[in-house]
C-alpha cells in the first residue's frame, strides 16, 4: 500500500492541556480512513492537525511529524495556505457562504487566481457533477446557497472543496446534521470520491464507518488505541477497549 499521509509521534496541546498523545497513523492513498471514538476522544483534533486548521486557534502546540508524500507539513518552509489547497476539509455543519451557489464553488478557484469565465464555468459544473448535485441545482446556480436543504448544502460544500482540486479530503462528521436519506446519498458520494481522492472521515456512527471506510482507527482519551482494516476492526479487534466500544459498552 502507498501512504498518502502519515502521522509520526504526534502530540498536540491546547494551552497546557495535552489533547493527543503519541499518535502514529498511516493514511492510505485512494482509500477511506475512518476515525472513530467517543466524543472528546481527540479524533476531530487529530483531523484538524492534518491540514493545520488548528493553527487558527491561539495557544496550541504540535510536537512530532505529519508526513504528506514524505514531507513534514509542520516544517517551517511549508505554507499552511498552500497545504490547505491540497488538503480540503468538510465540516460538521454545512457552511456555505451567504452568496450564490455558483460563487460558492468558484470562490476557491478565484482566490487561487483563476479569472477565466469559461474555465470557472467548467470547474463549477464538473465539481457539482462529482458531488452529485448538478442535476438538482443546474437551473438555479445564481440563487443563494442558503436556500438549499441541509443535505444539498453539505454536497455543495464538498463540491466547493473539489473545485480547488485537492489531493485529500478531510471530513469532520459530515453527516451528523443530515437526515437518513441525505446521509445515504453522502455516503455513496464518499465511496465514489475515493477513486480520485484520499479521504479521512471522522464519525461517531460506527455503522457508517463500517459501510464506507477501508481502514478504521479507534481513538480514546487522546490516544490511538487501534488501527487496522475496517473489517478486522469490526469483526476481530485486538484491543479490549476497541471491542467494548464497538459492541456498545460505552460512549
Amino acid at each position: 500500500m502507498i501512504n498518502k499521509m502519515e502521522a509520526k509521534h504526534l502530540d498536540f496541546y491546547y494551552k497546557d492541556t495535552q489533547a493527543l498523545f503519541n499518535i502514529n497513523l498511516p493514511v492510505e492513498k485512494n482509500a477511506v480512513t475512518a476515525l472513530i471514538g467517543p466524543s472528546g476522544c481527540g479524533k476531530s483534533t487529530f483531523l484538524r492537525t492534518l491540514n493545520r486548521m488548528n493553527d487558527v486557534i491561539e495557544k496550541t502546540k504540535v510536537v512530532g511529524e505529519v508526513l504528506m508524500d514524505n514531507k513534514n507539513i509542520y516544517d517551517p518552509d511549508v505554507d499552511p495556505v498552500e497545504l490547505r489547497k491540497k488538503v480540503g476539509m468538510v465540516f460538521q455543519q454545512p457552511n456555505p457562504f451567504p452568496i450564490s451557489i455558483f460563487d460558492n464553488i468558484a470562490y476557491g478557484p478565484r482566490i487561487h487566481g483563476i479569472k477565466n469565465k469559461q474555465k470557472l464555468q467548467e470547474l463549477v459544473e464538473s465539481s457539482l457533477k462529482s458531488a452529485a448535485l448538478w442535476d438538482e441545482v443546474k437551473d438555479r446556480l445564481h440563487d443563494s446557497a442558503l436556500g438549499l436543504s441541509g443535505g444539498q448544502q453539505q454536497r455543495l460544500v464538498i463540491a466547493r472543496v473539489l473545485a480547488v482540486e485537492p489531493e485529500m479530503i478531510l471530513m469532520d462528521e459530515p453527516a451528523s446534521a443530515l437526515d437518513p436519506i441525505s446521509t445515504s446519498k453522502l455516503e455513496e458520494l464518499v465511496r465514489e470520491l475515493k477513486n480520485n481522492y484520499t479521504i479521512v472521515i471522522v464519525t461517531h456512527n460506527m455503522q457508517q464507518a463500517a459501510r464506507i471506510s477501508d481502514y478504521t482507527s479507534f481513538f480514546l482519551n487522546g490516544k490511538l488505541i487501534e488501527y487496522d482494516q475496517t473489517n478486522i476492526i469490526f469483526t476481530a479487534p485486538r484491543e479490549k477497549q476497541t471491542e467494548d466500544y464497538i459492541t456498545g459498552r460505552f460512549g
Partner: peptide
C-alpha cells in the same frame, strides 16, 4: 459565524482573502 472563516481557510484562502 466562524464557520465561514474556517471554510474559507480550509479552501486554502489566505487570512486577508
Amino acid at each position: 459565524p466562524d464557520d465561514y472563516r474556517n471554510a474559507s481557510l480550509a479552501l486554502g484562502a489566505t487570512h486577508w482573502q
